[in-house]
């Protein structure tokens, strides 16, 4: 899948590849050590820069899940 910025594409692909394998083979099997963190860091920096250039402000303050803002489906019965 594409990144929002072509400049970050290479970093995204490297990170995604690492993450997918880690998620399936490690995280879901109980490991809590995120071995892809260094790749995520450089990828995130690239995306952060791209968003700034494109005028998209969303880095903070958009959390909904797990907060009071999260909408919940009505309970049946």
């Amino acid at each position: 899948m594409e990144s929002i910025s072509p400049e970050c594409q290479g970093l995204k692909e490297k990170y995604d590849k690492c993450f997918n394998a880690w998620f399936r083979d490690k995280f879901l099997k109980g490991s809590r050590h995120d071995s892809c963190a260094p790749l995520l860091k450089s990828y995130q920096q690239c995306v952060k820069k791209a968003l700034k250039e494109q005028g998209i402000k969303l880095w903070e303050g958009h959390e909904t899940l797990g907060t009071d803002k999260e909408k919940r489906p009505p309970k049946n019965g």
């Binding site: 899948m1 594409e2 990144s3 929002i4 970050c8 990170y15 995280f27 995306v47 969303l58 958009h62």
Partner: peptide, 24 residues
């Protein structure tokens, strides 16, 4: 769906994986 990127991701103290992604 044009693009998707990871904005943030971490493992919480509860052992859950928390992710935020931006999708265009």
């Amino acid at each position: 769906v044009l693009s998707e990127d990871v904005i943030s991701r971490h493992i919480g103290k509860d052992g859950c994986l928390y992710s935020t992604r931006l999708v265009t």
